[in-house]
């Protein structure tokens, strides 16, 4: 569904991504992991089409460069790591923005657009927030509202940049389970960045480890989440053991006092 070949991105003077390759099949979940500044967000933005880059990105077999912005937005939904939230807008109006690719340039939304938005808010437990202002929400509530906007886009590919950082345990599970259900039921293709390596290993089919803009490992969770790889690239002392479903669980190891 998504193919990335030899992707390089320059931002300012720096080469932030160098020769990254990745393939994500329909219905598959790819988690991008890596230390701060590795280029995870940059990779998502390049796939989404917001950054000039070298190399090829295709979506559903078509080169992304040939897609019109609206066409691309119907194929790829994106929830950023640090969204710009207009504080005075209501939650409903904000989530409704996800319907933009379906509404004519100067037109107005249809009944259907409002229904889709309302049902997405319901599914994320946000129904009671619909008329609240975005600026009056907690960090985790905001994060779910941004996710609601992306889901309202009803695109077959979902790019989520750190979708769970501000969420409590229960809501982390709720969001990830929802995304998981959507991909199983509707064949959604999912690419997320995740800092919680254990969660990444639990939910994703494939992990892509980025370090300094290069893909240093890619494969099943068990192959990427190993003590040598994580230890080296995150500069951390970890212990990794098999957990539920045979998927790895990553523990930090406290240093000697």
């Amino acid at each position: 569904m998504i193919g990335v070949r030899d992707l390089s991105v320059r931002l300012g003077e720096r080469e932030v991504l160098t020769g990254v390759d990745a393939t994500v099949r329909r219905g598959e979940w790819l988690a991008i992991i890596g230390p701060n500044g590795a280029g995870k967000s940059t990779l998502l933005k390049a796939v989404m089409g917001a950054l000039a880059h070298r190399g090829e990105v295709d979506v559903g077999g078509r080169s992304a460069a040939t897609l019109k912005p609206r066409e691309r937005a119907r194929l790829i939904a994106y929830a950023p790591q640090t969204p710009a939230l207009p504080p005075d807008m209501t939650v409903f109006d904000y989530a409704l923005l996800g319907r933009t690719p379906y509404i004519p340039y100067l037109g107005r939304e249809s009944r259907h657009d409002r229904d889709v938005t309302a049902s997405v808010l319901d599914r994320l437990d946000l129904a009671e927030f619909a008329v609240r202002r975005v600026g009056e929400l907690s960090g985790g509530e905001r994060q779910r509202v941004v996710l609601a906007r992306a889901l309202a886009q009803q695109a077959p590919v979902l790019l989520l940049d750190e979708p769970t950082t501000a969420l409590d345990l229960g809501h982390q599970q709720q969001v990830l389970e929802l995304v998981d259900r959507l991909r199983r039921a509707d064949g959604l293709t999912v690419i997320t960045t995740l800092h919680d390596l254990t969660l990444a290993g639990q939910y994703a089919d494939t992990l892509l480890l980025l370090a300094r803009g290069r893909a240093v490992a890619c494969g099943e969770p068990g192959k990427v989440l190993t003590e040598p790889l994580v230890g080296e690239h995150f500069d951390a002392r970890v212990m990794i053991e098999p957990g539920p479903g045979g998927r790895p669980v990553v523990h930090l190891v406290r240093g000697e006092p």
């Binding site: 923005l97 340039y105 037109g107």
Partner: peptide
């Protein structure tokens, strides 16, 4: 007046406007 909805889209920033298919 016709651009009200588009200004709402712009209020999320250029990058996110792109992700919604708006130039």
């Amino acid at each position: 007046l016709l651009h009200g909805r588009m200004l709402d889209v712009l209020s999320v920033g250029d990058e996110e406007a792109v992700s919604l298919g708006v130039r």
